[in-house]
Write a protein that binds this DNA or RNA. Sequence first.
RNA 1: AGACACGUAGCUCAGGGGUCUAGAGCACCGCCUUGACAUGGCGGGGGUCGGCGGUUCAAAUCCGCCCGUGUCUACCA
Length: 885
Amino acid sequence: MRSIDPRRLPKHFEAEVVEDKWDAAWQESGVYHYDPERSREETFVVDTPPPTASGSLHIGHVFSYSQADVVVRYKRMAGMNIFYPMGWDDNGLPTERRVQNYFHIRCDPNTPYEEGMTFEQASAKTRKKPAQLVSRPNFIEACYDLIREDERAFSETWHRLGLSVDWRQEYQTIDEHCRRTAQRSFRDLWDKGEVYTSDAPTMWDVDFQCAVAQAEVEDKDVPGAFHKIEFAIEGADASFVIATTRPELLAACVAVTAHPEDERFKPYFGKRAITPIFRAPVPIFPSEMADPEKGTGILMVCTFGDQTDVQWWREEGLPLRQIVGLQGRLRKIDFGEAPFESLDVAKANANYAELEGKNIKQAQAAIVEMLRDPAHSATGNGAPLQEEPEQISHAVKFFEKGDRPLELLPTRQWFCKLLDKKERLVAKGGEVQWHPPHMFARYKDWTENLSLDWCLSRQRYFGVPIPVWYPLDSEGEPDYDHPIVADADVMPIDPTTDVPPGYDAAQRGQANGFVGDPDIFDTWFTSSMTPQISSHWGADDARHAKLFPADMRPQGHDIIRTWAFYTIAKAMLHEDEVPWRNALISGWILDPDRKKMSKSKGNVTTPLPLIEKYGADAARYWAASARLGSDTAFDESVFKIGKRLVTKMFNAAKFVLSQEGDVHPITSELDRAFVARLKALVENSTENFEAYQYAHALQEIESFFWTHFTDTYLELAKVRARGCADGATGDDAAASGSAIASLRLGLSTLLRLLAPTLPYITEEIWSWAFAEDFGAPSVHGTSWPGAADFEGIEAPHDEKSFETAVAALAAINKAKADAEVSMGREVEALTLATDPTTLSTLGGVVSDVLAAARVAEHQLVADDALDAGTFAVQAIAFAPKPEKG
RNA sequence: AGACACGUAGCUCAGGGGUCUAGAGCACCGCCUUGACAUGGCGGGGGUCGGCGGUUCAAAUCCGCCCGUGUCUACCA
């Protein structure tokens, strides 16, 4: 048994020094390394969220990553072979935006590549000038440069926090391996017939010039107005008034519809309506989807105002009148040519000329003015605009990172089929164990309400290229119906530089040659493959079999509809599997006013200052105090409590491990009673950890540490433990040895129970003596406490011994507090009363109580009037206060 | 508009049919420098567990309705 000399330890626990020391030691010893030789059954695979490296690091990251690490560390101690990788999600729009701002550059695919081009952070001065245009490859190089720095910052924080990651498994979603995995995924989906290209109305962000998927769309309530506009009816002396929030789309009107049972409009079905201003004849048809209660009950169908317009356009075979361009401005059109019709072409063109080139907002203002002009009426009844527009607030779809509403524009995009398998997707999600279980409802709601296939292509630069070329016909036009999809064994490829089989480079862009698809994948297309990226799917079958599906996916609830959903979809599409067996959904950190932290609100808390102030263990303590799934208001005082716990452990350990004595079995009644409690705690904690209830486990362990260990057992056993050092012999030496052994068992057990949450302080203390005693150099590599630790220790004679000793000591302490003397004050004479049953229990532990309370003479009295288990100090006489010095 | 979660001390949170006469920490009050620890210890005050009803011998806990907060999904003429 190794004991320590407390004088050789620092007075206080120095977190920063210890954190550096142990982080380096852990990397050196490889205690976090995955062992590919061990079986699947013994292996626990974590599908770690790859943080968006270009995003700002905030306290929410520390929160959720620490929670995952606590579970991982438990599993490791429980004997599992941990596979715990770390990745960086660096491809995609967030990185592009950050690079654009940081260097003040813009990507221009038409600019030629410049070898060896370097960039510096833009100054305020250069920012005033227009952004520098750089070639696509130069832009991509700039992206790589910046993400390296961002990833280093994250990595340093992860090390500081003590995440037990196997850094040999690090990846970037833009690296060659991930590009290959994503492209292979595409190839597999192509072979299975699950992806297709189509030129169809798609949600389009006019600022980012990019297609957007349903998952990236956010509804925002914005002010708008109902405009009531009068239409004429061809060949009839009648008219009707439609209501629209988008009068600027009048030139794109292709039909008018109302409910089939609506008596007001029944006579008009089958006739044609004439639009004001442009005098375009459009069909009037009935539709169940029209709501007679809404607006005026009759509405114009445009290409395209919303998703319902798309549906009517498809079902009714309406013409496409595209007036909004990709930049969000009204295009040049000609009413003389199909599909634009007008009964008065000259007038229509003259009117449209006033709108052409305007953006949506400007066009709306302009057309409203035109609608006020009686000359533009389709009927001759006066101004087409009926009454003043009615101001309303309505939900409008925005790209989550966008500033202007999305437009539905026909563009060619790649899609993955999802709508035909919603039920299967829900069922697959149901096979995952969600923690907490109600998070499955989020997934289910989202999946059941899917209304669009997954749009995979993005008109961006920094991402995984879509591995596709198109043959060019004799006119030099791409044949989109016969794409050339790259073979899996040549991936990753870039179709803008690589050449498809059967062609040579000179044929690029030539008639009868080929052209590469310029687009990249939606970032989620790659990050939905994180389990397969780590398992080396398609590249190493044996490894894949051992690492897929993963056991645990930790993530936030905000990305259930994206990351969780797409990952489940991919695993199902590729191998009809779940991607992981357990999903641990962490909550959000809200600011103290319970508002979501966000950069724009300026209420983001950065983690490093907190870690420096309280220590990494305290930061982890804070994270581990919160249950899965529940949003938590940020409260710095929890860090303080964590730090206090760490300090207390340091001091308690110093005391326990500095007690010297021979090795003795645990025999004294109080010690046995304490061990019985400890054993129950271990069983309880194990159950909690197995159920991923780390917060509950921590709470019980911490509470035990204070109320059963340091505040009570340690105080009660202290004097007896020191017996050996004070020269005790015989039975006294044995009793002393029993106390020392029991204190050490208590400490070593509590250290192991707290090691997942507080890796630094526990490792530091473990290294003082237990590393040698247990033959385990790291507490994180030792085994989780269990029955073996308590073997051969007998149960206490009386199961109430422990609480009785504690209650007796507390009663004496209270008497001291009431008398306003110190707890250390000696008691010359004490009369202590309790009920007869408790009195007999007290017999087994009374010597420890009297020693702890420093009682010289005592008398014990049975009193039936007292409630069971309570003590009353009937008389107490204190020794004189010792002279100072 | 539907779904889910939450509502417990001034604050942050546990507890989720008898073990609760409702807990912890922070904050507050009083006292104590004792040989692990003043980055401490001992003691204390503080809550009709959102409201109303029901089930039960027994409800903070289960059920129903309502109110409030948050999130998700939907609505988008």
